[in-house]
């Protein structure tokens, strides 16, 4: 029915129809999902505020700003490969997004065990992401002497923003790992058997959002 309604009217009409209807505005969207979307919208404003602050401070810097691709390079086969670790982390996060998307798909087929393992895999990938981040932090702190308040290579804000933004993102990832595990176990135990598996989709929304934020951090922090 939703499809039918969409095919014979333009998007604008649909929007107007939906906003002027009773009961629900977002048709066929369960409460939890609507709430998650709105939360993510709010969270977008948080991350954008961080990134915009980073932009403002970096652009006004007169001290040298370290060149990230070199700071974050890693020895491989005897030569420093720029951004190697970050590349790996990016790939891990993308992969975890993929497994998550599969979990959602399996959820709607009510394949409980598959959902569990896919979510579990997603959580593990997420956890390894956090682990690598910890490694990266350690390397930066002990190896390069960059602290949140100082930076031997130039502007101290380099470290400040790096630790703050990646730290805040890392917290999101960690919270997501916990969230995934809880939902995964509940799915396996059959808590949602009698309802739809929309909770998997909701968890997925959050997880993809975390990945999405990383796309922006990757571009603006590591490639600028």
């Amino acid at each position: 029915m939703a499809e039918a309604a969409q095919t014979n009217q333009g998007p604008l009409t649909t929007i107007v129809d939906d906003w002027s209807s009773d009961v629900t505005t977002f048709k066929a969207v369960p409460w939890g999902k609507a709430m998650m979307w709105i939360f993510l919208l709010s969270d977008t404003f948080i991350f954008t505020s961080f990134l915009v602050s980073y932009m403002a401070v970096r652009m006004t810097q007169t001290d040298a700003w370290p060149y990230p691709s070199e700071v974050f390079s890693l020895e491989a086969f005897g030569t420093p490969v720029p951004l190697l670790l970050i590349a790996i982390m990016t790939f891990i996060l993308i992969t975890s997004s993929g497994t998550m998307a599969m979990a959602v798909n399996m959820g709607y087929r009510k394949r409980k065990v598959a959902v569990f393992w896919l979510m579990f895999a997603t959580a593990m990938l997420g956890a390894s992401f956090v682990g690598m981040q910890a490694f990266e932090w350690t390397k930066l702190i002990t190896g390069e002497g960059v602290k949140a308040w100082q930076n031997p290579m130039g502007a101290p804000q380099f470290g400040s923003f790096f630790f703050m933004i990646t730290g805040f993102h890392g917290l999101h990832v960690s919270a997501g790992v916990a969230y995934l595990l809880i939902v995964a176990i509940r799915v396996l135990r059959g808590k949602y058997d009698n309802t739809s598996f929309e909770i998997v989709e909701i968890t997925g929304l959050y997880w993809h959002f975390v990945d999405l934020v990383w796309v922006f951090i990757f571009a603006f922090f590591y490639l600028w």
């Binding site: 939906d18 505005t25 979307w37």
Partner: peptide, 9 residues
Amino acid sequence: ERPTLITAI
């Protein structure tokens, strides 16, 4: 999703 949700977000 329906355009309503898309635009709202």
